[in-house]
């Protein structure tokens, strides 16, 4: 005897919720939406890689005794030889450009994703976990294995044909959105798990701000601009502590869209501006909004004139 989904069963709240989640997850999207995400994330990641040239130079000279491998770097027996590290830099930049422009994406997509993962892991393998590289790495990994160059790309220009909206273009964006909100929620959970409810007192945030400002003093760098002002007006710090944990914990609500997303996204940006001005801690991928892009219909960012141009050049001849 097989279980049958009767009309009554289909109307049950649990099944309706599953259906809504399923429809959201597998909703078709235009190839242009995923392509715009590829261009923006690829641009950010490639520029970040180029800007990291000083870090490549620094790590090329580090003594082996300082190497503390994490993640896939555990496969290495020691630090990469400097020629291999510079080879990684060159391949990363080249494949990053190809990724962004969508050239040979079938190969350059996963090559750049592998380079990004390798660099982020190697960079974090010297005693300091650099959490600002996690999210961009995960997004590049999703894009690298997705059909993200079926529009607005060198490959699409060569192929000359339009593509219909499809789940294969929407699903990677849903994954990227899930990764973003889960990341925030995990950061909120970590605060409550490690710091406990004390994290919601003004004292913890006060001490974090003072700790960061003192560190900047001792490293000969300027203090965060609002640090002293916040300490002098410490009544603002408890509401800020509660708000920052709430923004992180409730991030998954942004997936509901509408009012939830409209409220959460500016709150998250404000959180990053707060950590920047109070502690000089800035997760640029998040704070500049790149991490939040998969929550939007990105094809709307493309001016109508450009869209029309690509639509005419995409038409089959």
């Amino acid at each position: 005897m097989t279980a049958q989904l009767t009309p009554d069963a289909l109307r049950r709240p649990g099944w309706q919720l599953f259906n809504r989640l399923d429809s959201w997850l597998l909703a078709p999207a235009p190839a242009e939406r995923l392509a715009v995400f590829r261009i923006l994330v690829g641009s950010y990641a490639t520029i970040a890689m180029i800007v990291s040239v000083g870090e490549f130079a620094r790590l090329a000279d580090r003594p082996a005794v300082q190497f503390e491998p994490v993640g896939i770097a555990n496969l290495l027996e020691g630090p990469l030889p400097s020629t291999a590290l510079w080879g990684l830099f060159g391949l990363s930049v080249l494949s990053g450009f190809a990724f962004t422009f969508g050239a040979g994406f079938r190969y350059t997509g996963w090559v750049f994703a592998a380079c990004q993962l390798t660099w982020a892991t190697y960079h974090a393998s010297w005693g300091q976990m650099l959490h600002f590289e996690h999210l961009v790495t995960l997004h590049v990994l999703v894009l690298g294995f997705a059909p993200a160059a079926h529009a607005y790309s060198v490959d699409a220009f060569r192929r000359q044909g339009s593509v219909e909206p499809d789940t294969r273009y929407g699903w990677p964006l849903r994954l990227a959105a899930i990764i973003t909100v889960v990341t925030y929620a995990l950061a909120g959970i970590a605060k409550l798990r490690i710091g406990g409810v004390e994290w919601l007192n003004s004292e913890t945030l006060t001490n974090h701000i003072a700790y960061s400002a003192t560190r900047m003093d001792l490293l000969g760098e300027p203090r965060p601009p609002l640090a002293s002002l916040a300490i002098a007006n410490d009544w603002v710090l408890q509401p800020m502590a509660i708000a920052s944990v709430a923004v992180e914990l409730f991030a998954p609500l942004a997936l509901l869209g509408g009012w939830f997303r409209r409220a959460w996204v500016p709150s998250a940006i404000l959180l990053h501006l707060g950590t920047l001005t109070l502690m000089f801690v800035f997760f640029s991928y998040n704070g500049l909004g790149f991490a939040l892009l998969p929550l939007y219909r990105l094809e709307r960012l493309v001016p109508e004139r450009v869209r029309a141009h690509f639509a005419s050049s995409d038409a089959p001849r």
């Binding site: 974090a124 995990l186 970590a190 605060k191 798990r193």
Partner: peptide, 26 residues
């Protein structure tokens, strides 16, 4: 994504995101 939090083990690219999570004295 949530497995590092369950194992309480930070890593890359999967992390517990423990930045500034601990309390701190003055």
């Amino acid at each position: 994504l949530i497995s590092p939090a369950l194992r309480n083990e930070d890593g890359i690219p999967l992390s517990t995101y423990p930045m500034y999570a601990a309390t701190r004295g003055n």
